[in-house]
Amino acid sequence: MDLQESFINSPDHHRIPLLSWAAETPSAVLVIAHGMAEHAARYQPLALWLNQQGVSVIAIQHRGHGPHCPETDLGHYADQKGWQKVVDDLQQVVVHARKQHPDLPLTLFGHSMGSFIAQAFTQQYGDEIDRLILCATNRIDKPKLRTSLALVRSIRALRGKRHHSRLIDKMTFGAFNKAFSPNRTSHDWLSRDTQQVDRYLRDPLCGFPCTAGLWSDFISGMLTINPRSWREDLPIHLLAGDRDPVGEMGRGFNRHVADLRGAGLLVASDSLFPGARHELVNETNVDEVWHHILDCLRTETDSGV
């Protein structure tokens, strides 16, 4: 159950960092794709608990994130084809996990930004996983995304791909926090657990601004997501807090669930946790959330009912 760090070399010579927590006698494996402006090590408490339940865990450090990212690259995927590169990085980690655990069911878990990377992965490489869990996700609101992309691209064209825009931060994280005013901190929207929020704020690898290039890649990538092109028999579990502004306080999340079902996909479960905010795995009802994730992993016959 000790943390192990390793690296995979990508075709463009990027070293993909991954963290692994191996159960003694695993019955399943979980691959985690983390969110924006955070890092994989934050999932260690969940991973260690899952190890005790017989689940081995592997978490990727996305480009532009984590302790091995050069300071000049923090918050930036790549100068060219950033979105496809983070999706392909995840595919290499899934292939690695399969080699490590060839006989075990493999589930991909994506949180927030990671949930959209996981959806793009599923669209391109869906045959390589057995189950998909989308946490703190939202619908693909194409009109809104196109409007945001036009603004982001204008900022990128004017200031450059690596520019950190205060306007973009205000429109995203700043807007999310307004729902919880009067605010104690700049990131009250993350969790009701004030200790977790304070821990996030103290972490130099969390809460950093992302570049106009990353935002352009991210929004463009989201716009390519088309559930009607996914494999229809892949069990999908979705979970979020009903006070998560990313999921439009549950409204966007519910719309996303309906869209997936409308595409003929196998939505095995969808769960909105009352009062919970964005970081479900770090919320005040963490025991309930962790057990729910375990239940998703242990479902032998997933049903779309």
Rank of each mutant, 00 (worst) to 15 (best):
K99R: 04
K99L: 10
A268T: 08
H65S: 08
Q4Y: 06
H14I: 15
H278Y: 04
L260K: 07
T172G: 01
S112T: 09
C296L: 03
N51Q: 10
T72F: 00
D302S: 12
D188M: 03
P26H: 12
H111K: 02
Q91G: 01
K144I: 15
T224M: 06
H163R: 01
K161Y: 01
P143V: 15
L294M: 01
W21K: 08
R42I: 01
F208T: 00
W189D: 02
A276H: 09
G262Q: 06
H256C: 05
H13I: 07
D302V: 06
T107Y: 01
I129S: 07
A175Y: 13
W21H: 11
F180G: 07
L3T: 07
H163Y: 14
D2P: 04
L272Q: 14
P70F: 05
R261D: 07
W49K: 12
R231S: 08
L18G: 01
D295N: 03
Q80K: 13
P143F: 15
I168P: 02
R159W: 03
M1E: 13
W230Q: 08
L158G: 01
D203Q: 07
E288P: 01
N183S: 15
Q124Y: 04
G275D: 14
I140G: 11
C135T: 03
D130L: 02
L149G: 06
G82M: 09
S27Q: 14
R251Y: 08
T107C: 14
F176K: 10
A59P: 05
L280P: 09
D89Y: 01
